[in-house]
Design a protein around this nucleic acid. Structure first.
Lengths: 225, 225, 225, 225
DNA sequence: TATGAATGAGTTTTCATTCAT
DNA sequence: AATGAATGAAAACTCATTCAT
């Protein structure tokens, strides 16, 4: 049942920009949070071990409780951080400056790339769904950010309809669900997929093809005629 | 002391067609398996509790070990059962007898309905992916099933291309992934989706719309022109 | 802060009436309860250690949780038992068969003797008061039993007044409080008392004198003239 | 995260007669001591939390150790302070100037009022008894105080016997114990008492009646005939 | 075949205290 | 004199599994 998973040497773990100071609460917190992100996403909430998280940290288990109160508190902090990260990036796309079809393409590509690259995020969302989203519900940050994606899509659709290139009967939230599904699933279910078909969806060649395919599918779906 | 969720008296739990015999190993096993299916799919492998499963059973914890060896053994048995169940149904579609577009529509609708109805299945697949699909790998039922779906899709595509209605550059496995994604995601991620947008994807009205939308998207994707 | 208090070899601990059977839930429970009574009364709820209780038991810590759910659950069970014990004895006095003054004397003597002998009980009541009686409040057994003492006193007072030996303006509950105070305090506060005056109130000579004194004080208080 | 009881802004907490100076060791100490008094008396020695005390203080946990060495050191300081406080008041009674019965009445009333008003004191004595009075033993203030009460009672009894109003066979220490019991118990055990009988002994009406009752009981006890 | 009691090894959490600034 | 971060040791509690009947 135990599985000494090697810490994936991701970009997360340590940023030795300067000599590590002895007393640096911000760094301590970030360090704990980064390790916890990996552990929770790898093992789930129930499966993760506080001891294991602490061990991979530069501090002790005690600090984890000092800053985050409990295992669940830490898990919530991880969710918060991870959702904060995607929001930040999403803002920089400036999709409103693009022509509708181009904008839609860019949005889908961004969504694809983000999920493809941030597996931790995908896994954490999956895990949250196993818990009925009860932890995410408490994060106020959560609801706001989703509103902004929908706004972006609504704008695109509106402009596309006006320009005569998109059909008029597409609902923004439904479309968002569709895009999400296509980008999320191939990451979240890549193990069963790999086992079933002997194809690893994260292989570069497949990855590129899927990217095109999804953009294509979405554009065909919204396009007039 | 926690009583939590009383076993929903779903079609799963008990079928007292005949008077319950005193010692009925098969029934005991089935009973354990049904309860375990609910628990594992609700809580995950790490999150499920052997005590809780036993408590909701008509028998005792000891029997659980007697028949299934261990918690993991029980989990594997659950996976096996759930995959066995799905295969049965898929045979009755006779998609090969339908005209390509009709066949594709029917396949998508079947896939949609199946996921929509079998949430336990969807959750267990999700859970398996959290564990890197390591338990599912051993199940023969798993590989067989997937092979047959691909075969069906390949046939459809081929016939569609011949008939001049489908384009020629669609890969069957990719298409299967696309259909899966669209049908799976709205079930697997319905909690975070519901929290984010205040919409429950399992609401009848939304359900019907999604069904049409997905069929539409897939047909637009494969259609020539 | 730690104090390896020797288990007082009281009448509580083990009753080897018959050879100890390996599987005897009742005995296991009783054994845990007896040890817990000593520990909680010696150390308080916060001060008692589950490990320490378990160690002095014939079983393991796990059984303690198996039967009593939590440290607090065990503490409540101890309170319940201890209050049950006193009730049982109180029934056997048959004070209603005695002439008022005699009855009052017997009641006071019983109360005195009981407190004098059951220090665990006295300490536990003290400890409960430190917790604002919040644990005792949940015990249904608690309220009933107190009603019966008051009934006894009311009867005595009534009969005494009718017989012209007691004055009429004494409230039964107030009188009960008075008797309790006199019998309880010398046990509960015997350490500070001993330190203050170099006298141990549990010394046989003092004990006898206090007994007489308290009976005397109560009778003088209720007596007419 | 628990905020629990905000320090009741009782007479204890702060006396900002003059503008609060930046560094005022005496005030800091007093502030810590006052908060600690409340916490220890509310929770007991084992139950009180250093963190909680510190949080309710105007300063930090470190200062607590700076001034009082340890949790136990702080507890002892609290006991010392509380005992110091009581002595002051008792001098002003001038019981020796009163006629014996009057003096006895006044002494009982004072004792009653003091306990009724200083619940912290009562609780701390209770707590000390749970610890076998081991901390109080070291306090000089403690022994002195008790010696003086006994002296007062002895005087009263002597003068009463001489005057022919008190009986001759009453022991001063026993009488002190009796008075203490009656005044102490109704405060110390008021929670279990309240739960048992649905009567709060600290209610004004009950309080007044108990006061009279106790004076009455004591006078009846010492009175000749 | 079936059962309720029992358990060892872990897992989360708490607490008084000290360190670096 | 004062502070917030840090900590080791211990405490409460949980869990999958096995034993005796």
């Amino acid at each position: 049942m135990k599985k000494a998973l090697k810490a994936a040497p991701s970009d997360l773990n340590e940023a030795p920009t300067e000599a590590r100071r002895k007393y640096d609460p911000e760094q301590t917190k970030r360090n704990i949070l980064d390790v916890a992100t990996q552990e929770f996403s790898a093992m789930g909430l129930a499966g993760a071990r506080v001891d294991q998280i602490a061990e991979r940290t530069n501090t002790t288990k005690r600090m984890l409780y000092y800053y985050f109160e409990s295992k669940e508190g830490l898990y919530e902090a991880v969710l918060d951080k991870v959702y904060g990260d995607i929001r930040t990036l999403e803002q920089d796309l400036h999709i409103d400056e693009l022509e509708p079809q181009e904008g839609m393409k860019k949005l889908v590509e961004f969504t694809f790339d983000y999920h493809d690259k941030h597996r931790d995020f995908v896994r954490l969302v999956t895990i949250e769904n196993i818990h009925g989203a009860k932890y995410i519900e408490q994060l106020k940050s959560f609801k706001n950010r989703n509103a902004s994606v929908i706004k972006t899509i609504e704008d695109l659709l509106e402009r596309g309809v006006s320009a005569g290139v998109f059909r008029a009967d597409v609902d923004a939230i439904d479309l968002h669900l569709m895009i999400s599904a296509l980008c999320f699933h191939r990451v979240s279910n890549r193990y069963t997929f790999g086992t079933a078909f002997g194809r690893d969806p994260s292989h570069p060649r497949l990855r590129a093809r899927h990217r095109e395919m999804i953009v294509d599918a979405v554009l065909r779906f919204v396009r007039k005629e």
